[in-house]
Design a protein around this nucleic acid. Sequence first.
DNA 1: GTTGAGCGTT
Length: 536
Amino acid sequence: MDFVQVSEEEGDEPIELPAEEDGTLLISTLQAQFPGSCGLKYRNMDSKAVRGVRSNEGRLFPPNVDSGWGEYVYFCVFPKENKRKSDDNLENSTAKTKRIETRLRCTDLIVLGLAWKTTEDSLREYFESYGEVLMAQIKKDVKSGQSKGFGFVRFGSYEAQMRVLANRHLIDGRWCEVKVPNSKGMGHQVPCKVFVGRCTEDINSDDLREYFSKFGEVTDVFIPRPFRAFSFVTFLDPDVAQSLCGEDHIIKGVSVHVSNAAPKAEQNRTHQGQNYNYNSGNNFGMHSYHPQGNHMNSGRSGHHRGNNQHNLHGGDNTAIGNSHSNMGSGGYGMGSNNNYGGNLGGGYTNSSNHNSGGNMNRQDAGIPYNRQNNFHGMNQPHNGNVGNSGWMNRGHLDMPNLQALGINSQGSSSSNQGQNMNNPLGVGLNLNSLPMNPALVAAALNQWSLLGNQLQNQNQDQQGGNFLSWMAQNNGGHSNSNMNSGSRKGPNNPNNSGSGSMIKGDNSASNDQQNGNSWSNQSSGSQNSVDKSNFL
DNA sequence: GTTGAGCGTT
């Protein structure tokens, strides 16, 4: 008899459940040990993604016909509480974000920088203002009992967790940093999108949507143009997406193959004329590495108008709040598509990035995955361009690196009273929470992209009204007022459709090509339909 | 008895 190792959650100690003679596992067997569970999933060691186990008529089927259940440790799927009842009228991104939020589980958060005197009680007391605190602990020296200056908290609600992560915390007189602990490791994001290969040209997006909708709600369909014999289908439920991976389906008489929509690694990255927008999304202001100083654009100066220099002088953060902040309206019709000034938010805005101005608001950021052009002939090791904007970057920003990128971290530039006053804007977006299995974003990135959308949908002011402040405000964040002025559709931007919503907002620069750089930018109507060419 | 970046004896 074959046994299947099942745990309630990933990482928990598994229980061996007996499979049936035909190799299947009865859901009733599963539920006998895990009441309320409705299915299984497991982490695919190759793709690192979580895969759902096929379920049919009360039976769960092993992922592999030959090797059966294999050595995987499966973990339970539980019915999701349907919290979307009132969200149906909301726009998709909001619904999806809600979805993420409901899917994401809380994780322990590390609280760094605690005063020595802070106790678990006072720690708990402080955080209870954000929501139910399930756990609050201070790490102490075993012998002396002295606090080590950090501790952990766990919240009962994801919303509380996110708000905590988005805020600064003055606890017992010290500004403390709350992050998802490194020890958690991320990468629990579950992609919602699948790659559909072997498509024929007569399979259109409606066909795909119609066909795949029977498995679950389809939130996006993307067919590359020109025709490339594949497409992407995004489901609301990542479990649905994963459950389909590896399968062949027949659509309009054509056998298509569904697989993970994972971008291929590095191969195409350095091709001349191909620049995959690693700069898309946030441009966190950085300390400029221009010693000369005259490129230390604060967003107010050195706009480099009319050129295509790919100016990416991060500039200091003083640019925030100046005029010129582009939120999806980019371009200014200067014929350069440079964005002068602060680019706030992530997601799909400013995908091509000619930001000469002060950008967001990070000042540190040792940023891996910096693949942009060599601006002014120099590599800027700390080029603070964080492309956390979803699809375009998913393959490059894995969760740990996102954290390394500082997405969920805090700045370190200023100081106060000897204690770092990290995070100038007082916010830190911990994406780890997003897709994070539990709390952890990106992915992930799937879901990261949703966060990106969220970011885009904030009614931003020049003080940095963004997702983070949204979180900080705890207003539920339903303001989706796009600020996309659509001004890019103009004589200077003949290639721009002008249809770009904030979500898509491509301050794309088709004229970059004269520099040999083809920035992949698309601005089509549907969500997530940015160029996904890096998935090939 | 001090200290101030870090990552959790379960």
